[in-house]
Design a protein around this nucleic acid. Sequence first.
DNA 1: CGGTTCCTTGACGCATATCAATCTGTGTGG
DNA 2: CCACACAGATTGATATGCGTCAAGGAACCG
Lengths: 258, 258
Amino acid sequence: MSSNIYQKYQNTFEQSQIFAGLDKSFIIDCLKHSEIKLFRRGQYLLHQGDKPRYTAFILSGNLITLRSDAHGNEIIIRLLEAGETCIEAILFPHSISSPISVKASRSSEILCIPAPYIEHICLKNNLFSRNLINVLAFYYRRAMQQIDSITMQDAERRLGQYLLQCYLESGHHEHFELSFRKTDIARYLGMSPETFSRTLKNLQKQYINVENHDISLNDQHALCCFCTPESAVNCHLIEKCPSHTITAAVVSKRNPQF
Amino acid sequence: MSSNIYQKYQNTFEQSQIFAGLDKSFIIDCLKHSEIKLFRRGQYLLHQGDKPRYTAFILSGNLITLRSDAHGNEIIIRLLEAGETCIEAILFPHSISSPISVKASRSSEILCIPAPYIEHICLKNNLFSRNLINVLAFYYRRAMQQIDSITMQDAERRLGQYLLQCYLESGHHEHFELSFRKTDIARYLGMSPETFSRTLKNLQKQYINVENHDISLNDQHALCCFCTPESAVNCHLIEKCPSHTITAAVVSKRNPQF
DNA sequence: CGGTTCCTTGACGCATATCAATCTGTGTGG
DNA sequence: CCACACAGATTGATATGCGTCAAGGAACCG
């Protein structure tokens, strides 16, 4: 039973940060203590203000984490793919109210790992708690980048960086597609859907070709001008890249004080 | 030696999140493996792009974490007081380059806890690694709030919320002072120093009195209109508060889906 | 095929950044 | 102790990026 599920999603487990390095028996034990739920598009896993009961691991589909204010305005914090987790940060310390909502952006199979079990394996398994620390640290750093880019970069740079990231995550395919609705990507990048649309049109003139949700780069290096130290890490064309040498120079210019 | 230092800063240790619940011997052992350094105003503990060597625990003074782009523009991620830590998130996984710089905003005594020792006690002491998870989760949630307020709130609301937070942290003293330079607070709140200055002047007309870095509230509830679910948790005047009932209603309106 | 949701496009206004000048406070050295 | 210097803060004038409002168009789904 759990074994079947393990095999079906083995790749997803192995490539995830949260289960990295953990063996089959650990994951199967985790599956036995958890529940798999199906969420349809637009359905909520958690509402702002609720107390979370489990951590969500995406087996398939996409989730969105968001915050909304009293006027109903929404801002999207994260766009999640299979193998990612959310609602980890809200379990610690337990019994706090959630500052975010989580909803499915398309039909998604979610592994719901109960909060008490998470606490249990945190204490029992050092590798798991180490993984959890890595995950939290990773998303915390990503949040810093978001703050940075929202305050210091204009809409075009933000969108360009996002597209570059999609390109790199697609495995350097010059043709890829957006996994989320444009409205959601817009809110994730801190801009209105209208601005998103206009900005994409501008980029189209210079770097890319857009057809609905399909993006094609004019050439391999089309988006290189949007490279950052963070995205450079995931790029395996660095050596040949004209703009990377510049980026690298800027970063290494600074010297440690001690 | 280490024992003297422990006694001098006992309160700071006990009230910190990272050492919460850990006993004297643990902290003294930690002191023995660490080094106390003095940083003067403006001096850097870490530059963007460097590999961090330790976690910084503030014994006294103030630190600032920031990011800067190629043009020299800076944005401030956190403003830290005694008892807080930074450079924890950057140690996991180890040997990544720092996405942030850290500098002292005034003369500060910093306990520098070496990265290898942190890793060591993470594996050895479950309570410590639990604390670390709490700390990371806490700052991650704070970063989400920052993203939220930068995109959805105007300058006046952001500054009002910040002042309310200062008021609450001061222990509800109607008179308190800003612990940081106004320029730095401005960049932390995602606005220019000029906008900060103008916005503060606007608030002065209605809610508060400002004299340099000294702030006095017109009355206990002067800043209540800037209350959020996050700040409400730290407020012990909630029952009597006119605006809180409204905030509470908004939050509890949403129902869990299951 | 009709309806709904999502996306696009245009016109307009505002909040906030930027530039530039002045003012204030603080600390330093003579 | 005063005067000078400098960083920080304020203030005004101007520019602009982006949000908002409103309407039209395209794609999708039952």
